[in-house]
Amino acid sequence: MQTTGPTFRNAVAADVPALVELVESAYRGDASRAGWTTEADLLDGQRTDADGVREIIDDPRAVLLVAERAGELVACCHVEGRSDHAYFGMFAVRPQLQGGGLGASVLAEAERRAREELGAARMHMTVIRVRAELIAYYERRGYVRTGQLSPFPYGDERFGVPKRQDLAFELLTKSLRLPEGPR
């Protein structure tokens, strides 16, 4: 049985509670263990909050992209135009729907929007460097590890409560330029 693809739209203020719940369900707590993107073994506490989501929605340089199926919010991501690239983050897929191609559809739409609407030639993201399976997922989709690390914000509980002391973010990048066709 094939499911229909998602429809996409920009998040609005009324979506904030559902978006917080979606992101939390994909990354934190026991519910997140139904999917493969859980960070429950790395972090406790929150992944985001209503203020953080609202800040992205209100940012004129950013879009919080929502994916829906049959009117249900099933995935989201943050795409933001920066000086020489687009930034990709807050990527969440309902845990029960992970592994079925929905995430790849959302990522492809984010890349299309970054290229076509923001004029970005590259996409940047940061991933917790110990998340080998997640980094491999992005590498299969053309992202390249840079080796450039940034510290995890220990002590800032807006990003969670670390369960280990070796967390850091690694920058991954991808060219968004389309290959040229035959001439």
Rank of each mutant, 00 (worst) to 15 (best):
R28L: 12
G99L: 08
W36D: 08
H124K: 13
R54P: 04
F152K: 06
S105T: 05
S32A: 14
V79M: 13
G119P: 04
R28H: 05
G99W: 04
L19E: 00
T7H: 12
A11D: 01
R158E: 03
S83V: 14
G5F: 09
L97P: 07
R69Y: 04
E111C: 13
M123G: 15
P182Y: 10
E55S: 15
V144M: 11
R145W: 06
E39V: 02
Y137G: 03
R82M: 13
G71A: 02
R183Q: 11
L178S: 13
P179E: 11
D51I: 03
Y138T: 00
I56P: 09
L118D: 03
L172H: 05
R113S: 02
T37N: 12
R177L: 14
Y138A: 03
A26G: 02
D58A: 15
V144T: 13
H85L: 08
R122D: 10
T146Y: 08
K174C: 05
M125T: 03
V79C: 12
E109H: 02
R94L: 15
F91Y: 15
Y27K: 04
M1A: 14
A18P: 07
L178G: 06
F169L: 13
E157L: 12
P60A: 11
H124E: 11
V93Q: 07
Y27N: 02
R115Q: 03
V16G: 05
T173Q: 14
P162V: 00
A18C: 02
H124G: 00
R33P: 05
V12W: 08
R140V: 01
V74K: 10
D84A: 12
E39A: 10
T7F: 11
P162T: 01
A70N: 14
T37G: 10
R177I: 06
L43C: 04
D58R: 14
A70C: 09
A70V: 00
A92C: 05
W36A: 11
E117T: 00
G103Y: 06
A14E: 14
R183I: 03
L107M: 15
T173S: 10
L176Q: 03
L176K: 06
S175P: 03
F88K: 09
I56W: 08
D49K: 08
A62C: 06
R158G: 00
